[in-house]
């Protein structure tokens, strides 16, 4: 293990309980929001958090499936990017359910795109708001842009835009209702001057 790898392992030991607490609260917040949107009981379970080397990010998301990938820029107490990756098939199921209730015969592409964007906004907003409230700070995020692609292609495009980055924070969650269960990945890529460090300090 390299010295920076050891630093990260130490960091994980310090930060993991704090980050886990935030994530559990955020997951509960998102579950409440999704239940309201879908008008049915949705369980949103936080399944794990890890700080992983950037190169391992590719293996941490499922390789072969197409995802709806969102990217949003963070400003304020946390700077950087937040990514949200949702399996495409699951997303289309959620959309079908929502559009049936709202406009059953809708083939309107704009409405569908708007709905996808709003789902990303609600999930990212739930997480980011919970982190901001926990830190008693403000974090602004840009309107999430959805990109439908294989995770690897999406990550390549996003990471090529960033300054060199060693580690990322990966949060995994499961959304479950009566009929389906889906894995959601949220990735925080801290930028310079972020309160979430790239390799050092504690979260608070």
């Amino acid at each position: 293990m390299t010295s920076s790898g050891e630093e990260v392992m130490q960091l994980l030991a310090i930060k993991d309980p704090t980050l886990s607490t935030i994530c559990k609260r955020a997951a509960s917040n998102v579950a409440k929001r999704l239940s309201a949107l879908l008008n049915r009981n949705v369980k949103y379970t936080f399944t794990g958090i890890s700080i992983i080397p950037l190169e391992n990010l590719y293996n941490a998301v499922d390789g072969g499936d197409v995802y709806v990938n969102f990217v949003s820029t963070l400003e304020g107490a946390i700077k950087g990017l937040v990514l949200l990756l949702i399996p495409y098939g699951s997303m289309t199921e959620i959309m079908k359910h929502l559009l049936e209730g709202l406009c059953p015969n809708s083939n309107d592409r704009e409405i569908k795109l708007s709905l996808v964007q709003e789902l990303g906004n609600i999930i990212i907003g739930g997480f980011i708001s919970e982190i901001a409230n926990y830190m008693n700070s403000t974090i602004f995020y840009s309107i999430p842009s959805p990109i439908i692609d294989l995770p690897r292609a999406f990550l390549d495009a996003v990471i090529s835009l960033l300054a060199p980055l060693d580690f990322v924070i990966m949060i995994n969650a499961t959304i479950e209702d009566y009929t389906s269960s889906l894995q959601v990945h949220i990735v925080l890529l801290p930028g310079d001057g972020s309160a979430i460090p790239q390799t050092g300090e504690s979260l608070q």
Partner: peptide
């Protein structure tokens, strides 16, 4: 009507008269 439910943002606005908040997705 917002998904941005951050106390640091809403605190000041909530003190204004005739301003209210509803979280997204709303009921």
């Amino acid at each position: 009507v917002t998904a941005l439910e951050q106390q640091s943002i809403t605190r000041d606005l909530k003190s204004l008269p005739n301003v209210a908040f509803i979280a997204k997705p709303f009921d």
